[in-house]
Simulated assay, not measured.
Amino acid sequence: MLKWNDVIRYASQGNPKPDRRVEKSEEEWERILSPEEFRITRQKGTERAYSSELCNLFEPGKYACICCDTLLFDSLEKFQSGTGWPSFTQPIKENAVAYHKDVSYGMYRIEANCNTCDAHLGHVFQDGPMPSGLRYCINAVSLKKVKDDSLKATFGGGCFWCTEAIFQELKGVIKVESGYSGGKVEHPTYREVTTGTTGHAEVIDVTYNPSEITFEDLLKIHLSTHNPTTPNRQGADRGSQYRSVIFYRTEEEKEIALKVISELQPSFDDMIVTEVAMFEHFYKAEDYHQNYYKSNPNGGYCQGVINPKLEKFRKLYKEKLVK
């Protein structure tokens, strides 16, 4: 989760690298955009407050850049700010938005641009709701609604090499990334996390289609494919970074997590100690941790540890596997 100090750091020290770049001449942009879209996005204009119905629309979906179609914001992060412009607490990805110092009109502000094509979106302020405290004040003209019902779930159950391999085989799961959540150190490295001093857990961040697999299904699979009764330990892996944890993004998800734990408790001889905590930030792990099992199927850890877990999982959830 980005916070104000992250925004200031990017604006002062340079922005994260975008996934791609789209560059056109001003003449090319003018040909493909409407006059108002061109004025706002390419000439740093501002639309009139309360001029768009987007301020009051909160149905599920994603918002993309009107110029280059890059996904920028999720409706889950949209809130009613009462300012007259659509407001969000976070971008959809850390590198989706670029930040620049803006001292125009005698004010000091942080301008928010599309990191792919440099389109002017609006500004970022530090008066938004917690836990981020950010308010992305965005011109509606800069955005277009994209139908996308996918959701995210983040949880840990020991080494993320194991959990990633399991969830990649499920129908309805679009993407699985390994990383770190739940700690206090920003942008931790694997070496730092393995010391157990950063507070992070090794987790997976799952993008899924809720019409094919539910959050409740994911949690039941999660809790039944690792040992949720051993504090800070999974097999030979010991330390707080290997704790069993579920991160929720909404109060509804929190209630579902507590319900699933209560329902599954009778299946275990010992008490389930899985932590249920509010999601704050997912830091993607280093590239060599991604798709680890698929990239190293004959490795010792994969053969000795991951394969037995996969075999058990495949028998338990045969009907939920990708064919």
Rank of each mutant, 00 (worst) to 15 (best):
R48I: 10
T198Y: 02
S178K: 08
R135Y: 03
E186Y: 12
G182T: 06
S132W: 02
A64S: 13
F313I: 06
N115E: 03
T189N: 06
R42M: 08
A119D: 00
S12P: 02
G235R: 07
Y105L: 12
V322K: 15
D205G: 02
Y63T: 02
L143I: 09
E252V: 01
I213Q: 05
I138A: 06
M278Y: 00
N56A: 10
E77T: 13
T194M: 10
L71D: 11
D217A: 00
D287Y: 03
E77I: 00
I138P: 10
E177N: 11
R42V: 08
T41K: 09
S51Y: 03
H187D: 15
R191P: 00
L258E: 15
Y301K: 10
C68T: 08
Q290K: 08
G235Q: 04
H100T: 10
E252D: 14
P16A: 07
D19R: 13
M130D: 12
H281D: 03
V322E: 13
L33R: 07
F155W: 10
M278F: 01
P188D: 10
Y99G: 04
G172M: 05
N232V: 05
N298Y: 09
H226R: 04
T163A: 13
P266Y: 12
P210C: 12
F38V: 04
F160H: 15
P129Q: 07
I110T: 05
H226V: 00
Q43I: 00
Y99R: 07
G158Q: 07
H120C: 02
I261V: 12
F73H: 10
Y10W: 15
T70A: 15
A49P: 12
G172I: 11
P228R: 03
G158D: 11
H200G: 06
M130V: 04
G45R: 15
V97S: 01
S25L: 05
M107F: 02
P210A: 11
L143R: 07
T198I: 04
C65V: 09
D118A: 09
T46G: 06
S142K: 00
S295V: 00
G183S: 08
I8K: 15
P266A: 08
M107T: 14
F247L: 13
T225V: 04
D205F: 09
T163P: 02
G300D: 14
F282W: 05
H226T: 02
I174H: 02
K312S: 09
D127P: 12
Q13C: 02
K44A: 14
A165Y: 09
D149L: 10
L316H: 01
F155A: 04
S52N: 10
W161Q: 08
I66D: 00
A112D: 11
K171N: 13
D118V: 01
A277V: 11
C137R: 00
C67R: 06
H100I: 06
A96V: 09
Q168W: 01
V97E: 05
L121R: 01
Y292C: 08
A285L: 03
D270G: 02
H100E: 12
V276H: 04
I138E: 01
C114V: 02
P228I: 06
Y292A: 09
